[in-house]
Amino acid sequence: MPFSADAGGWQLWPLLTWLAGLAAQGGGGPLRFAGQTLLYLLLAGTAGLLCTGPAWKKCLDAVAVLGFGVLCLGAMADLVNRVGDAAQQCQTYLAAFVPVFSGVLALGGQASGAAAYGGLFFAVSGFLAMGIERVLLPVMRIYFCFSVSASVWGDSAAAEAAGLFGRCLNWLLRGCGALFGIVLGLQNVLAGLADNAAVRMGGTALAGAIPLVGDAAAAALSGAAAAVHLLKGGLALALVVTLCTAFLPVFLRCALYYLAFSVSAIAAAGCGQRQCAGICRLLAEGARLCASILTLYFFMVFLSTALLLITGNGGM
């Protein structure tokens, strides 16, 4: 990053330049791919027009869909690898970040929050990263292979089966997202309430038990907690910026691939390439599912950190 994690020192132009750099990282590949697919479809459509016999047109369509399948599968293999790398990169960063953040939380009087963050959250994020690498991404690879094979085969039943596979993955991801959101959100709220009560009790006990200086001690406790709260905010901001650096280019890539496939589906239908249009529709759904996987992981990490930041206020 060209700037520090201290938000007070940020300026607009370096921030915009950084965001543009991230966007360029994610956008170049899909745009080139879109150009290649549109060119290929145009060529296939022209070849179909030049051949007048229906038998030869079928032969050309079969060759065109083979070539299109090769073109698309290569791009999707690259996308799936990048999604896996982004999740792994984030998990590696969290392995270093979580102990530090938990320590700061404990220092600020959020012992329950620190335990929740260092224990449950880290375990859940590790479980999700492993689930993405070992389960979701292999399933996505199977989905891509099945979609291309079904479209090359040309049977409508196989294409319907591939579509159903995609819808099942969609429902599975929605269920996972809802489950993790409920569990982590609830855990963070309860930990925050317990910590707030504990710090308030500590302040009250100090003011009541120690004469004369008890009030000053209670005020000093609140002041120290506020300072630690600021440090906590800076660390959380650093996490968010790191997450954005890891996820934004890949998320943008997924979105651009989705757009590229959607436009290619229209172009393929216009050129009379029905099977190529089927590949485009199914792989557009696959790119959307990859973006959903990234969003699930990103918001699980972001939500947990943000809730701890918001609900734990050190007794203020």
């Binding site: 290649q36 290929y40 060529l43 296939a44 070849a47 032969c59 050309l60 060759v63 065109a64 083979l66 070539g67 299109f68 090769v70 073109l71």
Partner: peptide, 11 residues
């Protein structure tokens, strides 16, 4: 994508 386009043109 040389292979795909060349194959299509040859066919």
């Amino acid at each position: 994508q040389t292979q795909s386009i060349q194959c299509l043109v040859r066919v």
